[in-house]
Amino acid sequence: MQLQLENLVPIPLRDKILQRTSDLWNQVVTFTPGSFVKIKAPSGTGKTTLVHYLYNIRNDYSGKVLVDGQAWDAYKKDQIARMRQQQISVVFQDLRIFDQLTAAENIELKRVMLPNPYCTAEKVAEMAARLNVSHIMNQSGKTLSYGERQRIAIIRALVQPFEWLIMDEPFSHLDDENAQKAADLISEECRARNAGFILTDLDHDNRFAYDIHFNL
């Protein structure tokens, strides 16, 4: 699955963005499938906006986001759902965990969304153990700390098949040790799928072997 940006400019940030140069806004960019992409940007430059455009939950932009050569609006809702189940996964900055479900159920929801789940329940338990969240799996989403939610959101994103994983400041609530564990797990899972990722963050980091860096 190929992702391309074509002169993409968010309408609300248009004036601000056109005053300065950016590696991505208002450029023609192709993300090579399977590559690890880091997008570094200070606050307020539209990181989350970009992630939402890439994942197609916002469309207040000029220019185009091309998915396999076609703009998002060329796809039907059921096609987009299929992509989100099988080709593109996401970790939101605001995590988006269901409060009424337990941590385990939040992950299970995504796992069994496909009639033939991509990974086993044992695999989920193993990932939870690696990220030190096994003990909170039966707690309701409402009672989880931000750090715990973040790790649940990461595991949730990893239980499905994907070609691209999009992450918006995925380690913002984690200490360095836990962040590195999560990064290692993400790396492994991407390699296992021959998938790439697009990660946005505020600062420079060396948690991954990035193939390419962009400044937003």
Binding site: Y55, I57, K77, D78, A81, R82, M83, R84, Q85, R96, F98, L109, K110, M113, R156, Q160
Partner: peptide
């Protein structure tokens, strides 16, 4: 949110 996570309308 379900739709965002990939649940098909169907």
């Amino acid at each position: 949110l379900l739709v965002t996570l990939g649940t098909a309308p169907r």
